[in-house]
Write a protein that binds this DNA or RNA. Structure first.
Lengths: 219, 219
DNA sequence: CGGGCTTTTGACGCCGCTCAAAGATAGTGG
DNA sequence: CCACTATCTTTGAGCGGCGTCAAAAGCCCG
């Protein structure tokens, strides 16, 4: 994340923590005593309305930051989607480090602004896209994420259940399932099992996102 | 925004610009040469899909920042809702200033994280709330914003047209109009003209937002 | 007074939600 | 190895909220 003797100091104050899949380990409103960053696994930031409707407002992948310096309360529930390993720091000590380390603050700023851009792209999806476009956008995002490593048409992991995807896209799990079936029947994608798919027609998939050519997720 | 001799330096590099209501003055994809902050008026960050559907992804009020340091391209269209006055800085010079001024970076970080929290609250609204709840949430946000100054039940300005509200909430202008009429007929609010309203029953309005008691917009 | 714009209201249709049931899949214990 | 169960997923039928299309009403400004 940074490259200096600050790393050494970060090193001394860090500790590791593991969480089992499915567990919500930070709750909105609780005091925020530790910050952390994801080492391994996937987590989501969620908010639930009083009647139980849930929206995922952030997806945390390895290297992503959890919690926010300069705030004493947790703003959103955080749930482990898979088994999770975190690298934790004491919040106040970390804040002190940020104050004394200009480059760390700049790096944090950069990360926050990137997340803000992603959140805004996601707002377009939530507010204006159809179910089909939402699903296509979601798959396209996964493709862009994994394409870096893979050559081309490798099978891609679908890390979330239908229900979790629904809460991510502002849909119901039934609609997610139906739209995935439609894309499959149209030959855009193919499933080897329910958690792994291959893109057969990337152009058509991106066409189905509703975005203009370059306009995909920044994520 | 900051309090030192940096201010003096900021002062020397700043210039003012005015934009007329309705004008889109920054376009997605254009090179980002100037950063600015809103002095007077209201602007929106928008993204438009290829078929014309538009989503407002940010509301810019006086003191809010426009553009983002560390990126060379504009990420979203920016439109003046009212007549607008901006205070502009050269981007590269501002970035240099940020690098040399730790406290400025920390302040920018704080602002970015606050915006990120608002964006996430907004994602819940866009993804999960009904039209009625969206409208109630919007009015409630305006109330919270203006209540600071006013004692209590002063008339509140509705700065956007029905169409702009619709693009903000992920609705159509007709639905916005209908839901406002319903809230009016139910006696929760009263309109003196189409751009100014009074809240008659704040408890009922907040009940209608769908949030739990404390859970409103952070904005 | 007249023309353009915003807003309201109505009628209707469709997309996605709800309710329901059956089909996969994985994990567990006999 | 095979029930047996719990969980996840698929698919269907029906409905309702919100979008679409259309027209009328209110408002601003010349």
């Amino acid at each position: 994340m940074c490259d200096d003797q600050e790393l050494a100091r970060l090193d001394r104050m860090k500790s590791y923590r593991t969480i089992k899949a499915g567990e919500t380990f930070l709750w909105r409103g609780d005091p925020l005593v530790q910050l952390s960053s994801v080492v391994r696994g996937i987590a989501t930031l969620n908010k639930t309305l009083e009647d139980g409707r849930t929206q995922v407002v952030g997806l945390l992948l390895p290297s992503d930051f959890v919690g926010r310096p300069g705030r004493s309360e947790i703003g959103f529930d955080v749930t482990a989607v898979t088994d999770l390993t975190l690298c934790c720091f004491d919040r106040q000590e970390f804040e002190r480090l940020v104050q004394e380390t200009p480059r760390l603050a700049q790096r944090m700023l950069e990360m926050a602004l990137d997340e803000l851009d992603s959140a805004r792209e996601w707002m377009v999806l939530l507010g204006r896209k159809t179910a089909r476009e939402k699903i296509a956008s979601f798959l396209d995002m996964l493709v862009r994420r994994t394409r870096v490593k893979d050559g081309q048409l490798e099978p891609i992991a679908l890390p979330l259940t239908r229900d979790e995807i629904a809460n991510f896209l502002g849909l119901t799990l039934e609609t997610v399932s139906r739209q995935l079936s439609i894309l499959r029947k149209e030959g855009l994608v193919e499933f080897q099992d329910r958690r792994h798919f291959v893109v057969l027609d990337l152009a058509a998939l991106q066409e189905a996102t509703g975005d203009d050519a370059d306009g995909g997720m920044i994520v």
